[in-house]
Computed example of a mutant assay.
Amino acid sequence: MKKSIKIVSALAIVLLFSAFTLNKTNTNKGYQIGDIATDFSLQNIDGKMVSLADYTEAKGFIVIFTCNTCPYAVAYEDRIEALNKKYADKGYPVIAIMPNNTDVQPGDSLEAMQARAKAKGFTFPYLKDEGQKIYPQYGATKTPHVYVLEKTKQGNQVKYIGAIDDNYQDEASVSKKYVENAVDALLQGKEIEEKETRAIGCTIKV
């Protein structure tokens, strides 16, 4: 009987520890809708450091974790550029961040980023997440992975998380432009209908 009590007690301790560990894991998934995103200072392809605070006139930001080497990210390059051209002047510039470990993915080195940006004519900052400290804060898991932020009195509030649109393969076949719809709603002072979608892309290389 005493042996059974000891086994049950030990099992209870294990379950309690597991529950604590599970809870600890679940609370570290990055930003959720409504959270305030902390600022960062990351190196741009021109060698300068860039922070969200630099954009004093911005109303918000389209933060996109992307890279050179992922086929999904490459498929979206022109659409990312189009987002910046459409919304930067309206107060929502694109801020692109390359989150991959370049030891694992050398095609995403700073030099490669510079060459890609020049070849494609990027008009937005293309930042390197040195030390991979920023993407885990956001909870990004894919390239591309988008976070639309709105400037508020409390800080840069997360308003949308997920994919750029619903068809990475063919822009002409897109039926839902998630990011555009989200930014348009913010500019019009309306509620965003789809605040979160599933990001489609390559896993971030660690």
Rank of each mutant, 00 (worst) to 15 (best):
Q188S: 10
Y126N: 07
K59A: 03
N100T: 12
K195E: 14
F61R: 00
I36V: 14
V63W: 10
I33R: 12
E180V: 07
L16D: 07
S41K: 14
Y160Q: 08
E130I: 05
G60Q: 05
I192R: 08
I36R: 08
Q157E: 15
K120L: 12
C70N: 08
A199W: 04
L22Q: 04
Q154M: 08
K2C: 00
T38G: 11
I64C: 05
T123M: 05
K176T: 14
L149R: 09
D170N: 14
Y76W: 11
Y168F: 14
V174I: 13
F122N: 05
A37S: 14
K151P: 10
S109M: 08
I134R: 02
T66P: 00
F40C: 12
K90F: 04
F40A: 08
D129H: 11
N156E: 12
E196C: 04
D103W: 01
C67I: 06
D78E: 13
P99R: 09
T21F: 15
E111W: 03
K59Y: 07
G60V: 13
V158Q: 06
V158G: 01
I95P: 01
C202A: 12
A58V: 04
D39L: 10
F124N: 07
M49L: 13
A53H: 11
G139M: 13
E191H: 02
I7C: 01
A88D: 07
E171N: 10
P99W: 03
G162K: 03
Y55R: 03
D78W: 00
K151A: 12
P106I: 08
I62C: 04
K128Y: 07
N23L: 04
T21R: 05
P99S: 06
Y168W: 15
L110S: 14
Q137S: 08
P71A: 11
V8F: 11
Y135A: 13
K190L: 11
N23R: 15
F122M: 15
R116E: 00
Y31P: 05
A199D: 02
E111T: 15
E150L: 09
D170Y: 03
A10V: 14
F61D: 01
N181E: 15
Y55G: 06
K24M: 12
N26W: 15
V183K: 00
Q169T: 04
V104L: 15
L11E: 00
D54S: 09
V94R: 03
M113I: 11
V183C: 04
F17Q: 02
G121M: 05
L186W: 01
Y76V: 04
M98K: 04
T25C: 04
V174G: 00
T27Q: 15
K24R: 14
M113Y: 02
A172K: 15
E81M: 14
N100F: 13
F65W: 10
E77S: 10
T152K: 08
Y31A: 02
S109C: 14
L16M: 11
N44C: 02
V104W: 06
G155C: 09
C67G: 02
S175T: 15
E111V: 12
F17E: 05
A172L: 02
K90V: 01
G107V: 05
R116P: 00
A140R: 01
T123H: 14
Y178N: 07
D54T: 07
I80L: 09
L187H: 03
K205L: 06
K190V: 12
Q43M: 12
H145T: 11
K176N: 13
A185V: 08
S109H: 05
T102F: 03
V74S: 01
